[in-house]
């Protein structure tokens, strides 16, 4: 006789033993995109990893002596040398004949700006290191100053909007293209709004022998001026507007892009954030900048062919994650 038992699927899923590299107890702000991204990365990378972390919010909110939220070997040295520390770890592990993977990580400041040279050197030398950039588009740890990743027209404490200023004058640096120009095996962008896409890309990078790069868009409620509950929505809109395309590059060439089911106007994204508030003033300058940002988004959509052509391509929504998990919706 068989006995019928009811298996609560959601519970089952929740109770699966899961590796957590970054545990609770850290001190990130509510709704911090960077904390979420780092958790997803460390979860997917598994336990046989060694981390080199640049100075920045992530380092500060996860480790306050004598506490640490990391369950993996983790080291912070300086702001600008995460890639070189990672390279040194990798050289040592290689000399010891170990297969432990090295992940170096930093914020946009530690990656686009001050750590840029070390990153380029590490990529050029072909170290077996996955570099993860948590992009919250400013120096958050020091109080929201502009970086070369800050988008055009965003207000920060060093690019404030005012009667003579519409926020940051310059464009966001196209880091992933620069990284890809090193002709490394794998580079990709990702967003906290698409967790299973992050997992997939981390696993892909983990399997690569050689340098790989993952650029994760991670909203910062404090610096961007949005409600902490809206982090995922804001992140998803960055993708759906075309402002932050999700792409994969192999050996320097574009190998894939996540198509957008329904392209949204950039104002939907910008309107949720205080850093773009000045763009909604009733002025010619504001309208001009809005148009400028829309043009940048349109450009991305065209270059990466982001407009989905069939329902099959419609992977940008919450549903995309579900589909990737095998069509079932868990919890």
């Amino acid at each position: 006789m068989t006995q019928e038992i009811e298996i609560p699927l959601a519970e089952l899923r929740r109770n699966q033993p899961r590796f957590g590299g970054l545990e609770s107890g850290h001190r990130a702000c509510l709704g911090c995109g960077e904390a979420l991204a780092a958790r997803l990365v460390s979860e997917s990378a598994g336990p046989d990893v060694m981390y080199a972390n640049a100075t920045g919010c992530l380092e500060v909110f996860t480790t306050a002596w004598p506490d640490s939220a990391w369950q993996v070997p983790w080291m912070h040295s300086l702001f600008s040398n995460a890639a070189s520390i990672g390279a040194g770890m990798e050289a040592a592990l290689k000399a010891q004949g170990k297969a432990t993977k090295v992940i170096a990580m930093g914020g946009d400041g530690g990656t686009f700006d001050i750590g840029f040279q070390a990153l380029s050197g590490m990529l050029e030398r072909g170290h077996n290191v996955l570099y993860v950039c948590y992009d919250n588009e400013a120096y958050m740890n020091t109080g929201v100053q502009r970086s070369s990743s800050t988008p055009h027209a965003a207000a920060t404490t060093t690019s404030p909007a005012g009667s003579e200023s519409m926020g940051k004058r310059h464009l966001k640096k196209d880091i992933v293209s620069i990284v890809a120009a090193h002709h490394i095996p794998y580079a990709a962008t990702a967003s906290v709004a698409y967790p299973s896409d992050i997992r997939k890309k981390v696993r892909r990078a983990m399997g690569i022998e050689g340098p790989s790069f993952l650029h994760i868009h991670a909203p910062c409620p404090l610096g961007w001026g949005h409600d902490g509950a809206l982090t995922i929505e804001v992140a998803r809109l960055a993708v759906q507007t075309g402002l932050f395309p999700l792409i994969e590059l192999e050996r320097g060439g574009v190998a894939g892009a996540m198509p957008i089911r329904e392209v949204r106007p950039v104002s939907d994204y910008l309107g949720l954030q205080a850093r773009f508030r000045h763009l909604f003033a009733d002025s010619a300058r504001a309208r001009e900048e809005l148009e400028h940002l829309q043009a940048l988004a349109n450009h991305n959509i065209e270059v990466y062919r982001l407009r989905g052509e069939s329902r099959q391509d419609c992977m940008d929504s919450e549903g995309a994650d579900t589909v990737r998990r095998g069509g079932m919706r868990w919890a």
Binding site: M75, L78, S84, I85, A87, G88, A95, Q117, A118, G121
Partner: peptide, 19 residues
Amino acid sequence: VESEFSAASVALGAVAAGS
């Protein structure tokens, strides 16, 4: 490496990793 900054950093990372 590409600079002394990285030379020292690589050496640091290597010792931290046990070499």
